[in-house]
Simulated assay, not measured.
Amino acid sequence: MLEVTRRVWQVHEHDLRASGDLFYTWQYDVRWAAQYLRNNGYMKAVDGDRRAPWQLTELGRTVDLSGIGLSSKLKTKHQRPDL
Rank of each mutant, 00 (worst) to 15 (best):
Y42Q: 03
L22K: 03
Q55F: 04
T57I: 04
W9V: 06
K75E: 13
R6C: 07
G67T: 05
V8E: 00
S71N: 07
S72W: 08
Y36P: 01
V63Y: 02
T25V: 11
S72V: 12
A34L: 15
Y28P: 03
W32L: 15
K75L: 14
R31N: 14
L22E: 07
V4G: 07
T76W: 09
K75P: 01
A18C: 07
V8W: 00
D15V: 02
A18Y: 03
Q35P: 00
Q10M: 10
G20D: 03
V11Q: 14
S71Q: 05
A45S: 13
E58N: 08
H12P: 01
W54I: 09
W9P: 00
V11N: 11
K44R: 15
K73R: 11
L74M: 10
K77R: 13
L65N: 07
D29P: 00
N39V: 03
R38A: 12
V63L: 04
Y42C: 03
E13H: 14
L16M: 05
Y28E: 14
I68L: 13
K73L: 06
Y42W: 08
L74D: 11
V46R: 15
H12M: 06
Q35R: 12
L56C: 08
T5D: 09
D15Y: 05
L2D: 14
V4D: 04
W26A: 01
R6W: 05
L83V: 14
R80Q: 06
R51Y: 11
V46L: 15
Q35M: 12
W32P: 01
T25M: 03
T5R: 09
D64T: 06
L37T: 03
K75M: 12
M43L: 15
H12G: 01
D29G: 05
V63I: 14
A33M: 13
R51C: 09
K77C: 00
W9N: 12
D47W: 06
Q27G: 11
R6G: 05
Y28W: 11
N40F: 12
W54E: 09
S19N: 02
T57C: 03
Q10V: 06
T57A: 03
Y42G: 02
V11E: 13
L56N: 05
V4K: 06
N40E: 09
L22S: 06
S19H: 00
A18P: 00
M43R: 10
S19R: 00
R38T: 12
A45R: 03
L37W: 09
K77F: 09
Y28R: 12
Q79W: 07
R61K: 15
T57Q: 02
W26M: 02
N40V: 04
L65K: 11
Q55G: 07
A52E: 13
E13P: 02
T25H: 05
P81V: 02
E58P: 01
T5Y: 06
S72Y: 08
L16Q: 00
M43A: 13
Q27A: 13
Y24V: 07
R51E: 12
L37Q: 06
V4S: 08
D15K: 10
N39C: 08
I68F: 08
V30F: 01
Q55C: 11
R80G: 02
G48W: 06
R6N: 14
L74H: 09
L16E: 00
P81A: 10
